[in-house]
Design a protein around this nucleic acid. Sequence first.
DNA 1: CAATGGGTAACTGTTTACAATCTACAGTGA
DNA 2: TCACTGTAGATTGTAAACAGTTACCCATTG
Lengths: 226, 226
Amino acid sequence: MIPDDVVSPLPSQRALGDLVTDVLREMITGGRFQPGQHLKETELAEALKVSRGPIRQALARLEEEGHVELRRHRGAFVSTLTRTDVEEVHTLRGAIERLAAGRACTRMQGAGFAEMDEVLEQMKSVDTKIDPEDAVRLDLQFHDIIYAYCDHSRVQRVWESIRGQVTVFLRARNASFPDFLEVGYSEHKELRDALALGDPQAAQDGIDKHILGAYERLKRLNLPDR
Amino acid sequence: MIPDDVVSPLPSQRALGDLVTDVLREMITGGRFQPGQHLKETELAEALKVSRGPIRQALARLEEEGHVELRRHRGAFVSTLTRTDVEEVHTLRGAIERLAAGRACTRMQGAGFAEMDEVLEQMKSVDTKIDPEDAVRLDLQFHDIIYAYCDHSRVQRVWESIRGQVTVFLRARNASFPDFLEVGYSEHKELRDALALGDPQAAQDGIDKHILGAYERLKRLNLPDR
DNA sequence: CAATGGGTAACTGTTTACAATCTACAGTGA
DNA sequence: TCACTGTAGATTGTAAACAGTTACCCATTG
């Protein structure tokens, strides 16, 4: 058995289309493209040094995730975030995370809570550093744990399909309400304790409260109606 | 302005890939392919007289809907329905339909309930004819109305992604429990009345009860664990 | 000046063909 | 029997070309 350290990682065992999807998603959520911008397959293919096939695959996925809008014979356009999107993402997320938490709270055992506590520790220390991007990363990491332990492939998939947009919201929130960095820890700690009761009902109530709070804050953002 | 009634619909402005998706989905859920069967892109392309492009697009979608399993460099395999699948689909459906019903009950107004009553009328008369396929169609139609009126594109999309598998379950249920055809009407009538109260909480409770009942029945089916 | 209609350019949708890559499986040898 | 090797078959990735459509410009018309 050869240790992992000495083997140089192979070019990529993932499908090219998946890689392209990740790259484009990051470029969109990272603000490298303007909302409404026309993404042309040929240009993207040239820029990323791949053919149009993987590009089309990626754009189809990004459309499912709501990052681009596909218009027949017109192409892909970067989505504009509307008030409706914020509402839909939050209500849907509330519905599935409620389910996820109810299942996860009885499956996380020690290991899951250990992972959570590690994230919480970092959240506490972030208060002093105040790097918004770290706050976003930790927030997502915390919730990823819930989805990982809920043991439900379909719920996980739905989460992945809205995760990118949630990321955008979190960034927008941090940009508009920098004071949130301070309450991030306490809110998540509260949710962790609710899960730790091991009672699905308590876990679900905890999620309802948590997601609702996030939504209420975000609603104060100034977004176009459509 | 020319009214919609007089214009004949154009040949088909849908993408070929979408058509292929529908055809393949129907073939799989209709039992034309054996579970576990290896679907080869080239064969499908030849059979449907299209190129591999649309086939790949269709297989990617069907994988998201859980009808086929895609193994890298191996191809597509028709999914085998397991006990886990039944559980996942029902719990996820419960979560989103709960949300959908809470929203729909205040948005359906007269028109929505009129549509529902029409479906209910047909359900009542099905009792005498006993065509299982009609029962499946009406059951789906009833719930489609809830999703249509919930005014939530993302929830609708999730529903579409599991709708095919729900169809499979309904068919299996009717095959194993033909007596269900008789209680179908009353259960849906009960749900309709809960929605008619216009109270989101009551609507959600109605859904919980309805979906749970469906799940309990289906669990009695003899399915492989995985 | 607004509305109509032709024409064009650009892009996507689809097909075809080929190269690269990977998996499974049978065969080989110890 | 076990591990390794090689090959066949299949899929993925790439490339090029054509067809269909859309948007836009612009001259024409009333």
